[in-house]
Design a protein around this nucleic acid. Structure first.
Lengths: 150, 150
DNA sequence: TCCTTGTAGTCAACCTGGTTGACTTTATCG
DNA sequence: CGATAAAGTCAACCAGGTTGACTACAAGGA
């Protein structure tokens, strides 16, 4: 019998593939998972900086800096001077970035409905509750949730 | 609300960290997840070859070859001549390999019980059923299950 | 005010775990 | 046989991270 953690990983991989297939159908650039988390962080933190992003992603600031540069090249993100700290830059989603995030959210919703089609909406809700409770439990004192493997 | 796929990934990551913490408590070498899948494949396929392993892992044969070499260096795996094909080699777990696999299975069981402590054994079973059904559904015609992200 | 200590960000070198491509040796099938 | 395919290796490369050294600016005392 396959241990439950492995089932989680396999299912996640399958869903990610589903997501990318749907992106490809729309002729969308397939960004990596880490980019998705970056988008979410920027969407929720309008004053985001590279260092803040690095902490959120759980990587070094150098790695975060590379990611920002990449997303900037692709036009999803812009860098503005920080209002009070001249060392720092505000990193923010562009129009294009917001639009991509909207599409991604819609597609993840479709993937989730695909799961519901197989196991039922009730089971999906129960699973979300269970996983949420587990994540809360293990993140314990920490404020930020643990990041996924990517 | 966090999409369910992300919850899967975050929970998997948390469980992996739990697993590695338990390994570390036992002063065990922390092998990577891919190694775990390799062990499982070798355990179930006593006539395994490098190419077969590569297909199972979903990587190139060169990558599988590197992994085998590494596990061989660490004494978890041995290479024997193939009985009928002189190009090929049988790759098999050593005693040490079997022993490690046993420990890993026990620890994954503990991690799973940690989940059950939070959400209840019934929910764990329901989740395992649901995920299993989903994985079966999406793997469709394919015989081998999709591999996790590592 | 200046001076020390800390922080945002970058540059460069390196590591890891994979990739592609070229190759040798052995199998297999007409 | 001879052509084609498969097992495995070697070498070069790539992507996405790391560590370490550095610059520019910030902030809080003496």
């Amino acid at each position: 019998m396959t241990p439950v953690p492995f089932l989680l990983a396999i299912a996640y991989r399958a869903m990610t593939e589903d997501f990318h297939a749907r992106l490809a159908e729309l002729d969308r650039e397939p960004l990596r998972p880490a980019h998705g988390y970056t988008f979410r962080y920027l969407a929720e933190n309008p004053e985001a900086t590279t260092v803040g992003l690095a902490e959120f992603l759980g990587v070094t600031k150098q790695a975060a800096s590379k990611a920002v540069a990449e997303l900037h090249n692709w036009g999803y993100v812009e860098r503005k001077p920080h209002p009070t700290d001249r060392r720092a830059h505000i990193v923010a989603l562009t129009e294009r970035g917001w639009e991509y995030l909207g599409v991604a959210d819609r597609l993840w919703g479709e993937v989730e409905r695909g799961l519901a089609d197989v196991i039922g909406a009730g089971q999906v809700a129960a699973m979300a509750d269970s996983l949420g409770a587990y994540i809360d439990h293990v993140s314990g004192g920490r404020s930020a949730p643990p990041r996924p493997v990517w």
